[in-house]
Simulated scan of single mutants.
Amino acid sequence: MPTERELAATIDHAILKPELTRADVDAELDIAAEWGVFSVCVRPSDIPHAVERLAGTGVAVGTVIGFPHGTTSTAAKVAETRQAIADGAAEVDMVVNIAALRSGFDDVVVADIRAVVDAADGHVTKVILETALLDDEQIERGSRLTEAGGAHFVKTSTGFAGGGATVPHVELMRRTVGADVQVKASGGVRSYADALAMIDAGATRLGTSGSAVILGEARRVDAGAGATGAVDDTSY
């Protein structure tokens, strides 16, 4: 069972809702710093501010590419990725071309992924499949194509498509990809129990806006008090 610190090292704290004001973003950045999560995942326009505010905290800044639908052109995703890296992003989470994946256009999907991986120039790249919109065959194939495209992670969800991570989907993704590709579970990870279930299923990174609740529960467990509570994590 992971300690609070070990669990914090798996969390990408999501700050992605379109309606968030600068004050809202700052409050979330401060939460991330307070709890010592691995990273924040912010809207692309928030990268420079997040990098500045989190300087010296040890919390990395990541962002999203082609978010949330994945239907922007490859050229647009490449430009967005290059700008994100130039602005200070350490990691990028790109949304797969969902329509191409569902259509069976595997060459298109791989080329799209590879272009973003190349544009990221060695920075960690995660590929969001949006599992709520896919059947098991498409999830398995999308995971294989993610690996073929050279990405570092295959990821379940944006949290904006009416569904999030499930244990069976995380297990399927973990079985499908090799040891060099990690799995990120995002969307619906609301509690300490949810986090443990995703890690047990094979996830090594968790996307959630409920970091304080999850890590607060972990702290109580570390102290022998047990875990209770959940958060409405509809944003990621």
Rank of each mutant, 00 (worst) to 15 (best):
Ala55Met: 11
Arg220Pro: 05
Ala179Gln: 14
Gly56Glu: 01
Leu54Tyr: 00
Thr176Phe: 09
Leu196Trp: 12
Ala151Asp: 02
Gly159Cys: 01
Asp232Asn: 13
Lys17His: 06
Met1Ile: 13
Arg175Cys: 01
Glu80Thr: 05
Ala179Val: 11
Leu129Trp: 10
Ala148His: 04
Leu101Glu: 01
Val110Gln: 10
Arg43Asn: 07
Val109Ala: 09
Val51Ser: 04
Arg190Ile: 00
Ala33Asn: 11
Thr125Asn: 12
Ala55Val: 09
Gln83Met: 12
His123Lys: 15
His49Asp: 15
Lys126Arg: 09
Gly202Pro: 02
Asp233Arg: 10
Gly216Ile: 07
Ala55Phe: 01
Arg102Trp: 00
Ser211Pro: 07
Gly163His: 03
Leu206Trp: 07
Ile113Asp: 01
Ala14Gln: 10
Phe160Thr: 12
Ala227Met: 01
Val37Cys: 00
Gly36Cys: 07
Phe105Gln: 10
Val221Phe: 04
Pro68Glu: 00
Val116Ala: 04
Thr74Ile: 06
Gly229Arg: 13
Asp24Asn: 10
Val61Cys: 02
Arg114Ser: 15
Pro168Asp: 03
Phe105Thr: 09
Gly62Asp: 02
Gln182His: 15
Ile199Gln: 06
Ile214Tyr: 00
Ala32Leu: 09
Val40Leu: 04
Gly207Asp: 01
Gly163Asn: 02
Asp118Arg: 14
Ser103Thr: 10
Glu91Trp: 03
Leu20Phe: 12
Ala165Trp: 12
Asp87Ala: 10
Ala223Asp: 15
Ala201Pro: 00
Asp12Tyr: 09
Thr208Gly: 02
Asp118Pro: 11
Val189Cys: 08
Arg102Met: 06
Asp121Arg: 13
Asn97Glu: 09
Ala86Gln: 14
Asp194Arg: 13
Glu217Val: 08
Val117Pro: 07
Ala75Cys: 06
Val124Leu: 15
Gly149Cys: 03
Ala151Glu: 07
Thr131Leu: 01
Gly149Pro: 03
Ser235Gly: 08
Phe38Tyr: 14
Arg175Gly: 12
Thr146His: 07
Val37Gln: 04
Val167Leu: 12
Glu19Arg: 12
Pro2Asn: 11
Ser39His: 05
Lys155Phe: 00
Gly122Val: 11
Lys17Glu: 10
Ala148Glu: 13
Phe160Leu: 13
Gly187Ala: 08
Glu130Gln: 08
Ala201Gly: 06
Glu217Cys: 14
Ser186Pro: 08
Phe105Trp: 12
Gly159Ser: 00
Gln138His: 05
Arg53Tyr: 03
Ala185Lys: 04
Ala27Met: 03
Ala218Glu: 06
Glu130Asn: 05
Thr166His: 02
Asp135Pro: 10
Val127Tyr: 03
Ala120Glu: 00
Ala33Arg: 03
Gly216Pro: 07
Val96Thr: 15
Ile11Asn: 06
Met173Ile: 11
Glu52Ala: 12
Gly104Ser: 09
Thr10Asp: 05
Gly36Asp: 02
Val96Lys: 10
